[in-house]
Design a binder for these strands. Structure first.
Lengths: 162, 162
DNA sequence: GGAATATATCTGACGTGGAAGATATTATCC
DNA sequence: GGATAATATCTTCCACGTCAGATATATTCC
């Protein structure tokens, strides 16, 4: 019945009775859960020959709508990775022919990363499976629990500066 | 008012009306939140000269109680990293004199990683700050909300095989 | 007891991301 | 319009983790 985090908390209460470790019930669980969920999600990306970074790039471009294009800066902001990571992720997608890297018209500094036709087909198939996978992972919950969880996470994210 | 995840979901509803992307309200938010929280936690580890891996090792040993020792295998199981990662994390702690690596008596294959006195002092100080930090991060919530969130995460973790 | 197998740990190659600085282009100010 | 600053992107180096295989020791079965 006791999950890992409960065990850990009991150990701390024994060893450091001066501290109130109840936050671990939320933060510890959240982190372990995020790790496990990532594994589950990555497994589906891999079925389509995609790593997490590539999936992230293609999905971000895809959801912008036609013509499925963003600058590297916008890509980095939306995916929360550094500019260096964006360059490398785009390089990998480029090598597979999933995106093109063009010059932005107005501003010579800017680039324009756009989905190719094959990239769009790939991400449409992968994303369909991805969403099915997420439904599967959430199947434990009732609709009310899901709403409750979503609301709590949203509130937290807002405050942290989501 | 609209957080990033809400925006993303609205984009997908527009682009892929055939899919029900509501799971993102939970899974997307959980992942972004985990990333942000990690940054906040790591900042405190760094104040004590610790990386995430080192903190993880020292804290895991510390909460076992005296004599603060585990085998590499046990360390890896509790911290959810590969055996290779355990070796390297322990190497780094060893280089700083925070742990010792001895031979386990009964089994010549086994090792015994134990906190040194300086390691114990360091993790006690760092963990005190860490818990204060977690309290700060959870300050947005009422006690009831915290319990509710903890319960939902626990339920989820249980099913995934926490 | 010796061969085959299992277990525990370590090693090395590799992949990915971050941080800081390099480069290219544009904007601003006199 | 030329110097200076700002912006966008890329490059380089490094930290850290995984994975597959290497090594050392233990166990099992004949």
């Amino acid at each position: 019945m006791a999950d890992h985090v409960s065990t850990v908390m009991a150990q701390w209460e024994q060893e450091r009775p001066d501290l109130d470790v109840t936050p671990q019930a939320v933060i510890g669980r959240l982190h372990r859960l995020a790790l496990r969920l990532t594994d589950e999600l990555v497994a589906v990306y891999a079925q389509h020959g995609l790593g997490e970074g590539e999936f992230d790039v293609l999905a971000t471009l895809r959801r912008q709508g036609a013509p499925y294009a963003l600058t590297p800066k916008e890509l980095g902001e939306q995916t929360m990775v550094s500019s260096g990571a964006v360059t490398k992720r785009v390089d990998r997608c480029l090598a597979q022919g999933w995106v093109s890297r063009g010059r932005r018209d107005e501003d010579g500094r800017g680039r324009r990363i756009a989905l190719t036709e094959s990239g769009r087909e790939l991400i449409d198939a992968a994303f369909t499976d991805h969403i099915a996978n997420e439904h599967r992972l959430l199947a434990v919950f009732t609709a009310a629990e899901r709403r409750s969880l979503a609301r709590l996470l949203e509130k937290w994210a807002e405050q942290t500066g989501a």
